[in-house]
Simulated assay, not measured.
Amino acid sequence: MTSLIEAAAVSAGFAGGTVLRDVDFHIDPGEIVTVVGPNGSGKSTLLRLLVGAIPPRGGRITRRPDLRVGYVPQRLSIDPTLPLTVSRFLDLPRPADRAEKLALMDRVGIRPLAAHPLTGLSGGQYQRALLARALLTRPNLLILDEATQGMDQRGSAEFYALIEALRAETGAAVLMVSHELHVVMSASDRVVCLNGHVCCEGTPEIVRSAPEYRALFGTGTHGALALYRHEHDHSHEHHHHHHQQHDERGTGT
């Protein structure tokens, strides 16, 4: 088996309703795959199926025996009165090697916050703490569930640049579930567009021009696919969007 995880004709649902039907999905070593889709499209359900948190109702999921998943949840409910520092948080559920812990905090840019209470961190710092904790398991698959929700555009761009660098350094595959089409795409090898089933998939360019994608997300500025890619890539197939986006950001090139 070459893929880290493979799902074949998988369906899932709760209390009689079907959330996902006939989904084929795979992620290979070192690959960055982004799953996009509107709310209620089954993105979180797909993640839960892939990691084994829920069983599929139909179809089958195969995982490679050496699969090690590092999971970065959207948010963790932590009691704000709990006096948990960033450093202590990285010791859950089991104490981490101190040198490795410091090196990872350094790598994700939160080492100065080691003694800070976890509940006092900003959204971006908090996600970096979750990321450091996920990396302690030395995963060969890093799963991020809407990791940049609540960050501003610059914060998310920096976070995704970090993820891209970590992929290059560790060789881990990355599976991202995203609602933020404008940032994620430039780093993705493959985009899977989900709406209860796989509507379309392929490179960002292929998905950008797919009618199924446009039907789901529209073609206006908020639906246009790869905002950050335009900084480097002057293809003018979407001439109008290109200028519209730069004007909105006020940074023409």
Rank of each mutant, 00 (worst) to 15 (best):
Q244I: 03
G70Q: 05
Y213H: 10
V192E: 09
G30H: 06
P204T: 03
A173W: 03
V35R: 03
S3W: 03
Y213A: 01
E31L: 05
T45E: 08
C199M: 12
R60C: 08
E164D: 15
S3M: 05
E169Y: 01
A96G: 02
D97K: 10
S209I: 15
A115R: 15
E237H: 05
P38D: 04
H116Q: 15
A15V: 12
A161V: 01
E180G: 10
G196N: 10
Q149L: 12
Y228L: 15
E201N: 13
V108H: 11
H242F: 12
T203E: 11
V36L: 15
D28W: 07
Q74E: 15
A147M: 02
T45V: 12
L46F: 05
Y160P: 02
A215V: 06
L225R: 07
H116M: 13
D91E: 01
A173F: 04
R128L: 02
N195W: 10
R208L: 10
P38F: 02
A96D: 01
V192A: 04
Q125C: 08
G58Y: 01
R111E: 03
P139T: 07
H197M: 02
T18E: 12
S122W: 08
V19A: 12
P83T: 07
H234R: 15
R75P: 00
V72K: 09
M185T: 14
R111S: 09
A129T: 07
I32K: 00
A114W: 03
